[in-house]
Design a protein around this nucleic acid. Structure first.
Lengths: 340, 340
DNA sequence: CTGTTAGCGCGTTCAT
DNA sequence: ATGAACGCGCTAACAG
């Protein structure tokens, strides 16, 4: 007695429909023009009766097309990444691809593991959501020969399609908003800059805009997400030096904004009344925190969708030089950037 | 000239090591006892030289073991689900499985689509993270014959392993906390109860505990996540009837807590000073919202990890009657449950 | 229009 | 200890 009914194969269907495997295969692949109505009918019934579903394994083995796409995410707990994932997934469904999601948890050996894995499963393309990814982790990607697209971040010296935010424009808009609201000292706060282009571009646009408008004091500081003490001292120092003017902090991403908000809490400073606060990336709780936190919202879903479309274009043989799609951000104004 | 170097196959390796495929296969599967040191050496070098990696497709086809596990998530934007996902993923890595993540977005036809897909890829087991899943969507799962485990929620009349929170205990602890802090009227607020066992169990434990302690007023109401107006009226009404006493709201899950917080904002009510607030599920921003929101934190990561272990046990042929693992929650006390 | 045949890359008897 | 040959489920080339 069998443990469980073995799955029906294409041969079973062929037998049940008293025909050959080829015709069944043709039916499955939509080559309806080459099948008589009667045969189609029989095949259809056989498939239904046996609850047959073709094995993607065998199909991929034969054709070399697995219709599989790998997604590498540095940190799946990051809301930005999750939103992007939604967009990617929607695009996959629309195009008939399946997504293999790999969360590297920002660990290099996990990334190595997953790259091998994706290769083992013969994925046809890879999307890398590099948000929050450390630089060393990115280096590993360079060896892959598959169609690949980067989200949010570029890799120095590595020619690869990129989809992300128009950082220069966004940072400029954000800075101008703060200037327009009368802030006279602004601190640009980010995780360690390194060679991370998003941070560098945002910083540069901030500086340029500040200079263009002759901002009295444009400062810059870096702190890692887990350096609470350092964050405290940076913020305390900045506030003490500028509390007589209107001063504000501009935070380069959502994860850090959360930490900054916690730090300000610890220091007893209220965003809005005491100090301005503006963060990149929308936060679902932004309106609930005190007077609300002004954010620069990214079109995350669209970014994910566009990224997947781009990989597919490459899979389909597109040899265009190099695509770099930059989406505009949207400023969501809340209480944290209203002085007094 | 070939477009890109075709991947090396097991035959290539065999040729390069001047041996047969069989030995290479044995080497790959760790049957080291049956290989001479010299041959192992040659194979090892050939694999390295060709950058060979076995095709999981072919392997799965032959052995019938794909080492693939499917995960069905109702709503990937739910932080609870993401945390659980982390745990599942860690367990997968530890056990040598790969995860196929499917986000149904709470749409029935997407679920149908993904169930077929998982079956096509011959996954060996399925984990269903039912958090936020509508009842009608769950019904579809019943037909799958694969090893399957449910997270968080049970399906009526469907024998299946379940991993989740000890709802009765958790709700009891939460209720007693409110009682101890002097609240005399408590409103239990959830999404529509339906037949969702988590909601029912939490409600029942709330009622039982309230009765045992002779709480003056224990009320209950339901509202869907998108019914802002209804939420407003429920809360306004409750507050007006009880504002002379200390009154509190207990919310059955994190997504709804977010909506409740927004509603209270709209109504101009402050949690803590004006009305008590306690929510199931930890929120990363809980401490930043006003005086902070008291939450009942679930061991999400562990729940995910345990769920995957359970599926694997079934895959390995475990025929135990039925496992129901219930983890304890942890009350995280913040300002929202301190009256006056 | 339809069936027959030959692999895709791998694991697995079964001989050597 | 090692290799030759067969077949997993499917598609593609080639007959009929």
């Amino acid at each position: 007695m069998k443990r469980k009914a073995a799955r029906a194969t294409i041969s079973d269907v062929a037998k049940a429909a008293s025909t050959g495997k080829t015709s069944v295969s043709r039916y499955l692949n939509g080559e309806h023009h080459a099948l008589s109505a009667a045969l189609k009918q029989r095949i259809e019934e056989a498939i239904a009766a046996l609850d047959y579903r073709p094995s993607q394994m065998a199909r991929g083995l034969k054709r070399g097309r697995t219709r599989l796409i790998g997604l590498i995410i540095a940190d799946i707990t990051n809301p930005y990444s999750v939103d992007v994932l939604s967009g990617i997934e929607a695009a996959c469904r629309a195009q008939g691809f399946t997504l293999l999601v790999c969360n590297t948890n920002n660990e290099v050996d996990q990334e190595r593991h997953y790259l091998q894995l994706l290769s083992s499963y013969q994925v046809e393309g890879i999307v890398v959501n590099a948000v929050g990814m450390r630089e060393e982790a990115l280096s590993m990607l360079q060896q892959s020969l598959l169609p690949m697209v980067l989200i949010d971040r570029k890799i120095p010296d590595f020619a690869c399609d990129v989809v992300g935010l128009n950082n220069a424009e966004a940072a400029s808009v954000a800075t101008e908003h703060l200037l327009a609201n009368g802030y006279q000292a602004i601190l640009f706060l980010s995780e360690p800059l390194g060679l991370v282009n998003t941070r560098l571009e945002r910083l540069q646009a901030f500086k340029a805009t500040a200079q263009r408008h002759q901002l009295a004091s444009a400062e810059q500081a870096e702190a890692a997400l887990n350096e609470a003490a350092k964050l405290d001292s940076i913020l305390r120092d900045f506030y003490q030096r500028h509390q007589q003017h209107n001063c504000a902090v501009m935070v380069a991403n959502g994860s850090l904004t959360l930490q900054v908000a916690r730090a300000l809490r610890r220091l007893g400073l209220r965003w809005g009344p005491d100090i301005g606060l503006l963060g990149f990336d929308e936060l679902e709780w932004a309106e609930l925190a005190g007077v609300g936190i002004t954010t620069l919202k990214q079109p995350t879903w669209q970014i994910g969708y566009a990224a997947l479309q781009q990989v597919i274009r490459r899979i389909d043989g597109d040899e265009q030089p190099l695509a770099e799609q930059m989406f505009p951000g949207e400023l969501v104004i809340r209480g944290s950037t209203s002085p007094q």
